[in-house]
């Protein structure tokens, strides 16, 4: 069972966002494996431990991604590919195109990834890759069972669980609750230093940067108005309850 994991590095979820020259500043930021991708890495390793095979981590991003890739290798992934050529960076379309190109050179039975990344949060790349590769796709898995050439997935849909089945190879994305990612052991960390990590550029992949140019453009980044200090409602309890629900609906827009 050869498994590919699409993985991205993101800010630690606790980081504050600071803008500098109209960009999100990366200064002094703690980087982590995108938590949803981390579930995918864990799941891939668990499946490999049971069924054998190899886990390959595939990433597209700047050099700093290497630290997270090493973490994934320390957890138990076998090798990694990092496309770190800035000419190939773009939007979700670009990423999907490049990753699909990388994947086409690999032998694989299963591709895993997080259903969304906690930084950009657009959740497009795995679907796009599935479309390009023309293989089955299942998202937000909370349970994955591989049985020979078949895979059964429990998919979370707003609280309901769909039980889906498809043939391999397929792409499956993980939802929180799929597993508890492991903490890398020291021998794992040491071995990870020696595991192969291939850096690929546009020319290695024989991709012309023009062909993967972003289809969308960011024109502005801004911070939301500072979160106001909490508001303690006052008045009759009944009035407060009414006000609260209205606030949640109209102001906070969460109902």
């Amino acid at each position: 069972m050869n498994i590919l994991v699409l993985m991205k590095q993101t800010f630690d979820t606790e980081e504050k966002i600071v803008l500098e020259d109209g960009k999100v500043s990366e200064e002094g930021v703690e980087f982590i494996i995108n938590p949803y991708d981390e579930y995918a890495v864990e799941e891939a390793i668990t499946i490999k431990e049971e069924l054998g095979g190899e886990v390959t981590v595939i990433s597209l991003g700047p050099d700093r991604f290497e630290s997270s890739i090493r973490t994934a290798l320390a957890m138990g992934a076998d090798k990694a590919i990092l496309v770190d050529d800035p000419d190939l960076f773009g939007d979700e379309y670009s990423v999907a195109k490049v990753l699909a190109k990388v994947i086409q050179d690999q032998s694989f039975d299963l591709i895993l990834g997080g259903y969304v990344a906690v930084d950009n949060g657009s959740g497009q790349v795995p679907q796009r890759v599935a479309e390009i590769l023309n293989i089955p796709f299942i998202s937000t898995a909370v349970k994955i069972e591989v049985d020979n050439s078949k895979v059964t997935v429990h998919r979370d849909v707003e609280g309901d669980t769909e039980i889906l089945e498809t043939n391999l190879p397929a792409i499956i994305t993980s939802q929180q609750g799929l597993n508890d990612p492991r903490y890398p052991s020291l021998p794992g960390i040491m071995k990870a230093k020696k595991k192969p990590l291939k850096h690929l550029s546009a020319s290695d992949l024989e991709i012309s940067p023009e062909s993967v140019q972003a289809k969308t453009e960011e024109i502005d980044i801004f911070l939301p108005p500072k979160k106001e200090a909490g508001r303690i409602l006052s008045g009759e309890l009944g009035e407060q309850a009414k006000e609260l629900i209205e606030l949640l609906h109209n102001e906070a827009k969460v109902l």
């Binding site: 979820t13 966002i17 980044i221 911070l223 939301p224």
Partner: peptide
Amino acid sequence: IYAGKAFV
């Protein structure tokens, strides 16, 4: 983006 900590 960033779970609502910024907007683009």
